[in-house]
Amino acid sequence: MTNPHLPAAPATDPTFTPPSLGRRFGALIIDWVLCLLVSNIFGGSIQHPWLTPTVLVVEYGLFLGLFAQTPGMYITKIRCVNWHDGGRIGVPRGLLRGLLLAVVVPALIMDEHRRGIHDRLADSVIVDAPRR
């Protein structure tokens, strides 16, 4: 049974069109700058180069798992949802997606739905955020 108030799951929606790469990249830049600011509070990324990517992974895990959006995604009006049902991906898969995104290479190899390897392994997809 489907909920008429929720959009169709991206995997089963023949009209699904992913957001532009520009919006995705913009969200990543915003999130990266926020992670740099946070990591500088905890000792700086110069002394601890692993700190900023770690903050990014934690940010993705918590924000995607709980809210389906990072702060950068909120600003660029996109969200990350489950590929098969359109719901939240949860904290463990958010952490996995963030970890794989920190590696960068998986994000460069995309399919026709602009799902990188990190999205396919986390069973996620980036979609337009609903307008309020």
Rank of each mutant, 00 (worst) to 15 (best):
A107C: 12
P106T: 01
H84R: 08
L37S: 11
P53C: 04
R93V: 04
W32S: 14
E59H: 09
L99G: 15
F25Y: 14
L121R: 03
I46L: 11
D13E: 00
R131E: 14
H113R: 15
M73P: 02
I78F: 01
P18Q: 07
V38L: 15
G65Q: 01
D85N: 15
D123T: 10
G72Y: 00
G72P: 03
V104H: 09
A8I: 03
I46G: 11
P10G: 05
H84V: 07
D119C: 08
L51V: 05
V104R: 07
A129L: 07
L101H: 10
A107E: 03
A107I: 06
L95T: 11
V105S: 10
R114V: 01
G116I: 10
I75W: 03
T76H: 02
V127D: 05
R24Q: 12
R132V: 03
G87E: 14
P18H: 10
R93H: 03
E59N: 12
Q47N: 14
E59F: 12
C80I: 10
R97M: 04
R115K: 09
A129H: 00
G65Y: 10
V103G: 06
G22Q: 07
L28P: 00
P14C: 04
L101M: 12
F67P: 06
S45Q: 10
D128F: 15
I29V: 15
P14A: 01
W83T: 08
G72T: 08
P19H: 03
G65A: 12
L36S: 12
A68N: 11
G61M: 11
G22A: 11
L66W: 13
I46C: 00
E59T: 15
L121F: 06
I30K: 02
I109S: 01
P71D: 02
C35G: 15
I117G: 13
R114A: 08
H48V: 13
V91C: 09
A68W: 02
F42S: 06
A9T: 01
R97D: 03
R88M: 07
P19W: 03
L62K: 07
I46Q: 12
L21K: 07
L108P: 00
A68Q: 14
E59C: 11
R114G: 05
T70N: 05
H118P: 09
P18L: 03
T76R: 08
I117M: 04
R114I: 00
I78C: 09
G61H: 02
A8W: 00
V81K: 01
F16N: 01
D119N: 09
R88G: 14
A9C: 03
A11Q: 09
N82Q: 05
S124I: 06
F63E: 02
M110L: 13
T76L: 15
A9S: 03
I78L: 07
R132F: 01
L99K: 01
W32K: 01
D123I: 04
P14I: 07
A122V: 08
T54N: 11
D119I: 09
G94K: 06
G72W: 05
L66Q: 05
T17E: 14
T15K: 10
G22W: 13
R93I: 01
P10K: 04
S45V: 14
H48L: 12
H113Q: 13
I78V: 13
L34C: 11
S124K: 09
D128P: 10
L51H: 06
I109W: 15
P106H: 06
C80M: 15
F63R: 04
F25N: 06
G87W: 03
